[in-house]
Simulated assay, not measured.
Amino acid sequence: EPTTETITFVKANPVETVYLDGEVVVGAGVPQTVTTYEVPQEGLRYVNINSQTVLVDAETGVIVQVLR
């Protein structure tokens, strides 16, 4: 579960959008070719996919939360 600090950090540090086919949903995998960005919280990274910011598990590349 992401901390408030992580969500605040991600919203304060927007990144360029990457466009991918398919829906942006929890449990979907992010291709390894997509660059993800570090957050202060260990084990998570973030990226903007199809204009939606998502938190990704750093080890598996699976979306764990879509920030709305």
Score class of each variant (00 low, 15 high):
1 E>M: 14
3 T>C: 12
4 T>W: 01
4 T>Y: 06
5 E>A: 13
6 T>G: 07
7 I>A: 03
7 I>L: 13
7 I>D: 08
7 I>T: 12
8 T>V: 15
9 F>E: 04
9 F>R: 00
9 F>Q: 08
10 V>Q: 01
11 K>T: 14
11 K>V: 14
12 A>L: 10
13 N>W: 08
13 N>G: 11
14 P>K: 01
14 P>A: 12
15 V>Q: 14
15 V>H: 06
15 V>Y: 06
16 E>P: 00
16 E>R: 03
16 E>A: 10
16 E>Q: 09
16 E>W: 00
16 E>C: 01
16 E>H: 00
17 T>C: 02
18 V>Y: 05
18 V>S: 04
18 V>P: 01
19 Y>L: 11
19 Y>W: 05
20 L>M: 05
20 L>F: 06
22 G>T: 10
22 G>Y: 03
22 G>R: 03
22 G>D: 09
23 E>F: 06
24 V>L: 10
24 V>H: 08
24 V>I: 15
24 V>C: 10
25 V>E: 13
25 V>L: 12
26 V>C: 04
27 G>S: 07
27 G>I: 09
28 A>T: 09
28 A>Y: 02
30 V>H: 02
32 Q>E: 14
32 Q>I: 12
32 Q>L: 09
34 V>W: 10
34 V>L: 12
34 V>H: 11
35 T>C: 10
35 T>P: 05
37 Y>P: 12
38 E>A: 15
40 P>Y: 10
40 P>D: 11
41 Q>G: 11
41 Q>A: 07
42 E>I: 12
43 G>F: 08
43 G>N: 10
44 L>T: 08
45 R>D: 13
47 V>S: 09
47 V>K: 04
48 N>I: 11
49 I>V: 15
51 S>N: 14
52 Q>K: 14
53 T>L: 07
53 T>R: 07
55 L>V: 02
56 V>W: 02
56 V>R: 02
57 D>Y: 05
57 D>A: 08
58 A>L: 01
58 A>M: 05
59 E>H: 06
59 E>K: 09
59 E>T: 14
60 T>C: 07
60 T>I: 07
61 G>C: 05
62 V>C: 04
62 V>R: 02
62 V>W: 03
63 I>G: 00
63 I>V: 08
63 I>H: 00
63 I>W: 00
64 V>C: 06
65 Q>A: 13
65 Q>P: 00
65 Q>F: 02
65 Q>C: 01
66 V>I: 09
68 R>G: 13
